[in-house]
Each structure stands twice: as C-alpha cells, then as structure tokens.
Amino acid sequence: MQFRTFSLVAALSLSSAMIHAETTIRIAHATPETSPIHKSLEYFEENLEKRSNGDFDVQIFSGGQIGSVNEVTELVQIGSIQMTMGASVLLSSVVPEFNVLDTFFLFNDKEQARRVLDGKGGDMIKDAMEDKGFKGIGFFERGFRNFSNNRAPLDSVESFQGLRMRAASNPTQIAAWKSIGAAPMPLNWGEIYSSLQQGLIDGQESALSSIYIERFFEVQKYVSLTGHTYTTEVWFANKEFWDNLSPNQQALLSEVAKETVELQRELTVKENNDTLDTLRKQGLLINEVPVDVKKALGNTINTTIKDDIIKRVGQSFYDDFMDQL
C-alpha cells in the first residue's frame, strides 16, 4: 500500500493532545460523531477507563481529523497511534487476505457473517494482519450493500442488462458488473450525485445509509435489496502496543472491545432499519430481490472473479476460509 506522508502539523497537533496516563490509547477514525462507530467507541472509552481504575486513558479522534484511512493505518503500523479501523476493501492492499471478503453473496445474512468473522474465519484474517504489524480487535458492521436506480426494480438477472452504474476504479469490481450485463462507469464517490442527476448513470450500489446521507434518494426512484456484499469495518491496533500490555490489560481490553462491537452492530441495524423507513417516506419503491436471482447473480459474478481473488489470497487460505461458511 502506498501511503501519503503524514503532515508535520497534524503530527504536532496529535502530540499536543497526548495525556500521559499509564497506558494511553489514541484511536483515530474517519466517521462522524453521530455514527454507530463513534458512539460505540465512546462506550469503549468510558468503560475501559472506569473498569481499569484509570490504568487506561482513551482518546478518540473522529471524522478523519488525524488523516485518511490510509494515513492512520500507517500511523498505527508504525506505532504513532494505537488503534484505528477501516473498511476491508481499503485495507486489502496491505493485507491481501482481506480480498476474500470481496466475494459476492459471500454471506446469506448478517448472522452468518458475524458467526464467521467472530469465529475461525475472523481468526484467519487476524493472523494475516499480525504479519503486517497489526492486532485485530474486532469486526464492526456497516451492513450489506444494495442498489438504487431510476430505471426499474432490479428483480431478475435480466434487469441488470445495460444498467449504467457507478463502479469503483477496481478491475475486479468492473469485471464483476460486466459479467451480468451491467455497464459500470468508474467514478469518484463525490461524482455520483451529479452523475445521477444529469442522467449519466442510472444507478449506484452502496450501504443503505449512504443513499440517505448522500441524498441519492432525490435523484433515484428504486431501491433493490440485493445485499450483494457485506461491509465490515475492521478494528485493529498496533501489534507491538498490544504485546506490551500485561495479560490482565489484554483480558480487560478484549472484554470491553467485545461489548463495544456488539453495541456497534446493534446501533448499525437500527440505523439501517430507520434509513429504510425514511427512504419509503421519501417515495422510493423498495423491493426484495428473490433468492434464486441472488444465487444466479452470485454464480456468474464469482465465476468471473474467483481466480483473481485466489491469486491475491492464496488457494489454501481461500479454501480454508470458504470451509467456515
């Protein structure tokens, strides 16, 4: 992964914010303070400090104020800060094993996703992270990605034919969408709304909350619950920091972290459900996508991208992870 150089000004700002308790944990993340991630981290801060009798001092830097996901990942890797989190797709260039999560329709539902990531599948990913100097703490949840468009409900494989959609500038993603007849157009995130508004594209795919936050609902008519990929936000620490904690500190931190992940997932489910209700009130037509259609889409897409994923993660890792499903 290529990181941009962390600015001296930001570094000095971070240094001046340090309060030297026995063990300081500085956590930087890119989401706003209203997000389930930040709210759950406030729980982590309060409970870890209280239950350690002040042995830990937790400092949270929200909204990307310390830097981008890539920048703070580098800061954690070199030990300048202790923790951060990022979507698996943003971390896959430094930990290639994350690419396995790019498999379409990998999980049937959030319960299965949680069982795998909280079990051996997640342990496999955490082990891979350790080779890069990270200690996996837990898997926050963003939920499943779904489609919005202004052409028609996406309720069959054929309905994707010719669909002009925004795609990330990722060869695997572009190949995936082309395999089902869609017409992906690589666009930056900030270009989606205007492209929808001007009719340059018919639709886009994202988490439900993004459809509301980015106001895509103003220029879209339909939301189709494809649930084609599950987005996890990986919470991790600097491994050397973790290794230098006492066994009691590690046990307490793990205990509070587990509670934090559970709270974040509860808040995310509520946010996604509330967003769905809001989109209905805004007049969007929402449809469930039949299971057989999802299966057909998954078979076509994964046949196209499977070899590329295996090349990135290795055949053994791929087979072992799939066994966890």
Rank of each mutant, 00 (worst) to 15 (best):
L267Y: 08
S209V: 14
E262Q: 13
F216E: 09
A207V: 12
A237C: 10
L245N: 03
N188S: 13
W242S: 06
Q220L: 14
E233N: 12
F216K: 04
G227C: 04
L187A: 10
E240T: 15
Q198H: 13
A182E: 04
P184R: 01
Q197A: 15
T172K: 11
F160E: 00
S246Y: 09
I201E: 00
A183I: 11
G227T: 04
L163M: 07
T260F: 11
S179M: 07
N273G: 04
S209Q: 14
L187C: 11
E218H: 02
S179F: 06
L208T: 04
Y222I: 10
A167L: 06
E271G: 02
Q220S: 15
T226R: 00
N272A: 08
W177Y: 14
V219K: 10
E214L: 11
M165W: 02
A167R: 08
E262R: 10
W177G: 07
I180G: 01
F217N: 09
Q264L: 04
I192Y: 04
A175W: 06
S169M: 10
L225K: 08
E218G: 04
E259D: 10
S194M: 14
F160D: 02
Q173N: 12
E218Y: 01
S246T: 15
E255G: 02
L252H: 07
L252T: 04
W242P: 03
R265D: 07
F216H: 14
